[in-house]
């Protein structure tokens, strides 16, 4: 089975960001980058599928500047077999443009499965997977939490509010992976060493038209400090009054 996993390089999330001069990007000074969490789960799922089958190949693909090679290398050290960088040096925000670049790469290569993360943890966008499926004209199942691939069929489970949905489709297919399905493994040194020798292709990204642009980034207002109104049941009436009159949420 040939599997492709699309991954995105994102800055580590639990830090306080600063906006870079120009107001259109975050200040990258001091930031650490890694694979978007959901893409990590997707890579893990793909690697486990080939490990279980004892055959197959996992290709990881990423659109971006040369820095994405580090992220691709991490996926290789987890156990992916080859990597492709679709090189583009300026940030792209339009999911359609990225999906077109990926489609141009992945339409060849006879991939049985193409996996993406459910969403990018930095921009919280989640359209690339579905658009990619559309461009390649393949079935798409989004936000999968359980997956079985057998006899040319995909059986997937999706988690809804208070219910599960079981979905099936035929291969080849495009799937997006939600959390809970697998934890991205921590690469062993053996894996890191092996990754250094695995192939990494670099090709220019054939981006589709960018139909929207990022106008500006702003930080949310500073949280104002909390206030202690009192303690125990005595404080309740005052709390209710404040929630009604000041916060106006009751």
């Amino acid at each position: 089975m040939k599997i492709a996993v699309c991954i995105k390089r994102v800055p580590d999330q639990d830090v306080r960001f600063k906006i870079a001069a120009g107001g259109k990007a975050v200040d990258e000074a001091g930031l650490k980058f890694d694979m978007s969490d959901f893409d990590g789960y997707a890579a893990e799922v793909a690697i486990q599928l080939t490990e279980k089958a004892g055959a197959g190949e996992v290709t990881v693909v990423s659109v971006g500047p040369d820095a994405v090679q580090e992220t691709l290398r991490k996926a290789l050290s987890m156990g992916a077999h080859r990597a492709v960088q679709l090189k583009h040096d300026t940030p792209v925000h339009d999911g359609y443009a990225i999906a077109s670049a990926l489609a141009a790469e992945l339409k060849e290569g006879a991939y049985d499965l193409i996996l993406t993360g459910r969403m990018a943890v930095d921009t919280q966008n989640r359209s690339v997977g579905a658009q990619l499926a559309e461009l390649l004209d393949r079935p798409y199942i989004g936000a999968i939490t359980k997956l079985d691939v057998e006899g040319g069929m995909v059986k997937a489970r999706r988690e809804l509010e208070g219910a599960f949905e079981l979905v099936e489709c035929t291969l080849p297919a495009v799937l997006s992976i939600d959390e809970g399905i697998a934890r991205a493994r921590y690469p062993s040194l053996k894996g890191i060493m092996a990754a250094k020798k695995k192939p990494m292709d670099v090709r220019p990204a054939q981006l589709g038209a960018q139909r929207y642009t990022l106008e500006s980034l702003e930080l949310p207002p500073e949280r104002t400090g909390g206030r202690i109104i009192g303690e125990g049941p005595d404080a309740v009436p005052e709390l209710v009054r404040l929630l009604k009159e000041e916060a106006k949420i009751l």
């Binding site: 639990d14 830090v15 001091g30 650490k32 890694d34 934890r183 690469p187 062993s188 040194l189 894996g191």
Partner: peptide
């Protein structure tokens, strides 16, 4: 190093040391 086998609780410590330069996920700032 060889098998990536360890108690899962230490994964965040490893990741944080690499990403944030401390075994706890505090903001380096």
């Amino acid at each position: 190093l060889g098998e990536s086998r360890f108690p899962e609780e230490i994964l965040p410590a490893f990741e944080s040391m690499e990403q944030k330069g401390s075994p706890w996920a505090f903001d380096p700032a």
